[in-house]
Design a binder for these strands. Structure first.
Lengths: 232, 232
DNA sequence: CATGTTGAATTTGTATACAAAGTGTGGTCA
DNA sequence: TGACCACACTTTGTATACAAATTCAACATG
């Protein structure tokens, strides 16, 4: 729910943000690529002003960086950066799960169950619907974050969840990995139903950390090789 | 040491940010007060454009909020908000301390010791130099954050450290409280010297949590009363 | 051939003008 | 008197113009 996807009639500023962010997440703007304001403005069909606001926002989310001379570039994520972001996310989300468990209501559990069912559906067949999985997965985690009822925690997590590299390679997860993720969600529901904050916290932490290792195993060495090539 | 205080010749954007932030932290702009862009622009001696950028930045740091009609106001911090921010800060800073302990060098310890000595000096006399204490304290914590070497963790903490209410009432801490804080810093140095991450983490967590209770004890009930008056 | 330098071209920073959306007030009508 | 509507006023959003800074390349010079 909430203001998830940017509608077409949002402000120019929001559109610019959505477009640029999309380009970065999709990898069309490669890490390290320079982000000229005029070029982006043309690409987004707006003037420089909203582009500048979008760029500042993306900068605060660490998706773009600024040189000392104020030029902006797509941020480059090293393996260490990804690992770091995953660890912080594990800590933040497990805290959210603990708090959510403490203030859990039957309604929220019901809604969580719906997302859980959606994930079940998305991963039932031989060829899983990764898109549907990701959307339901996002909804599931968002709902927990809402239940934690901490604007600050939400703000922190927002800067941690969207990682270009991870996002781009999320498509490649195997059905088994998706199903395992689903099982962890189910277990989380159990912890919530019993209002066991510590349990929920531990499951969530393990959930995120497993996701990291799934990523690292699948693409870590490859990325590493590429990184070494680039550095060398 | 890094880009601490904004110099006078910084960009208009930075000046606007510094001025508005200062006004909020000092309480001159009361919580809930509307922040008109033109009024702020005049007050900062710049045009609306840099003010808008400053406002967006402050919004991402949760120091200002926006109504649904896009008007900005000084954020209002409830007791729960302050407690929440302190808890997140305790978690973030204890993590920073753990990591710093793992990558500690003699040079960093030496620099930490300098800040520690400065705090010793500032709190030695009957009438402690609170300003000097706060500056050295900030330097101490920043150095640990730098040693943790995580841009993301640094970004997270930046949004957590500056709390208007706390900042405004920091002046009122007693010499005993300041000295106790100093002792905790010394203990932290011991943990760093022994590269004991878990110890450092625990001390830091306790350090922040104690600071919270010092705040809550001193001003919590008073603020609470005021809050109730305002709400009622 | 390496190196420093000048100057055009590009890029960002800021101010301002105008448009659109919202807010509040005064008045009118039931 | 109370509700509702209209209109002026305020506030924010966006585009654009101009200024300042930076980059890059061509060129001269050692």
């Amino acid at each position: 729910m909430s203001n998830a996807h940017a509608s077409v009639s949002a402000s120019a500023s929001d559109r610019a943000y959505a477009v640029i962010r999309g380009l970065i997440l999709a990898g069309e703007l490669a890490p390290g690529a320079p982000l000229g304001e005029v070029a982006l403005a043309q690409r987004c069909g707006v003037s420089r002003t909203p582009v500048r606001e979008a760029l500042r926002r993306l900068e605060s989310e660490l998706l773009v960086v600024r040189s000392e001379s104020q030029r902006t570039f797509v941020a480059q994520w090293s393996l260490d950066d990804v690992a770091d972001a995953f660890e912080l996310r594990a800590i933040a989300e497990s805290l959210a799960a603990r708090r959510a468990a403490q203030s859990m209501t039957p309604e929220i559990i019901e809604n969580l169950q719906k997302y859980c069912d959606a994930i079940e559906d998305a991963t039932a067949s031989e060829k899983p619907d990764v898109e549907a999985f990701l959307e339901a997965n996002r909804g599931f985690h968002m709902l927990i974050l809402d239940a934690a009822a901490s604007p600050r925690l939400a703000a922190v997590l927002a800067t941690l969840v969207e990682q270009p590299v991870v996002w781009r390679t999320a498509q490649t997860y195997s059905r088994d990995e998706l199903r395992r993720s689903h099982r962890e969600h189910c277990e989380l529901l159990g912890a919530f139903a019993r209002a066991d904050g510590a349990w929920a916290s531990d499951i969530m932490s393990a959930h995120i950390r497993r996701a990291y290792h799934a990523y690292a195993d699948a693409h870590g060495s490859a990325v590493d090789t590429e990184a070494q090539k680039k550095v060398g």
